[in-house]
């Protein structure tokens, strides 16, 4: 039986390789057949930019023209943190973590870097309305700062759930509130009044930066903070 299994595996592998090559070539052929002239929506976006409230077209698309997609995407991020927590992984302290915690150089560096990173994050978010940048970029930097802090074990894990969870859900919550609130004004879903568009987008982006950064950092942690905190305290007491 063992031999048979191997033969099966071998044949599977051969078929897989052949198919991958044929498929890849087919895709290449398809790529060459794609139209060379621009067919995209750039021409549609440009005339509406003044109504979008921002001057960076990517931000306009993300937060205004196709804001619905972005709302759902923030939902995916929130879902990811809930999904990871639902796995209820056991908190572990890796060797790296201990090493980091015991190295004073890193701790110093982190103290130095984190404020700068947060400043950069703020700048990226703010500049997003006119140039490259925005909540995602800013959030990613916040997340980097968070990961550094976690690795250096410089923040105690929170034991109370409410504050942390509020921060996590805040960006999504505001976005959703704005989206639904527009209905009250007699507008469509997520239809900002043009004169308020800038301020609304900026507010959403600011809260999103915090939420995204925190979410990414906690995704890195992978465990439910309050559960981990309880365990950590228990270990420390022992």
């Amino acid at each position: 039986m063992r031999g048979r299994a191997n033969i099966t595996q071998l044949w599977t592998r051969v078929i897989l390789v052949v198919c991958s090559v044929v498929f890849g070539l087919g895709l290449v052929w398809t790529a060459l057949a794609l139209p060379q002239e621009a067919t995209g929506l750039a021409r549609v976006v440009k005339p509406r930019m003044p109504e979008s409230g921002v001057t960076n077209p990517v931000t306009a698309v993300l937060l205004n023209f196709r804001g619905y997609d972005t709302l759902l995407e923030i939902g995916v991020l929130l879902l990811a943190i809930i999904a990871v927590w639902s796995l209820r992984l056991a908190p572990t302290r890796t060797a790296l973590e201990r090493f980091m915690a015991e190295t004073p150089v890193l701790a110093y560096l982190v103290r130095l870097l984190v404020p700068v990173m947060l400043l950069v994050a703020g700048y990226l978010t703010w500049i997003g309305s006119s140039r490259a940048g925005g909540a995602f970029q800013g959030g990613a930097v916040v997340a980097g700062a968070g990961v550094l802090l976690l690795l250096a074990a410089m923040v105690p894990l929170p034991r109370r759930r409410r504050l942390l969870r509020s921060l996590l859900v805040m960006g999504f919550g505001l976005f959703l509130a704005v989206a639904g609130g527009m209905l009250l004004l007699g507008n469509n879903l997520l239809e900002y009044p043009p004169e308020r568009a800038y301020i609304l987008i900026l507010a959403i982006e600011t809260l999103l930066t915090v939420s995204i950064g925190l979410t990414l950092a906690l995704l890195f942690l992978g465990v439910i903070p309050e559960v981990a905190a309880i365990q950590q305290r228990r270990e420390d007491n022992v």
């Binding site: 549609v44 509406r48 023209f65 196709r66 804001g67 619905y68 469509n188 879903l189 997520l190 239809e191």
Partner: peptide, 15 residues
């Protein structure tokens, strides 16, 4: 039909 954000297709997303 509902144009989310008040933007009709192709610029916006329709429900």
């Amino acid at each position: 039909s509902h144009a989310v954000g008040g933007w009709d297709a192709p610029l916006g997303i329709m429900l």
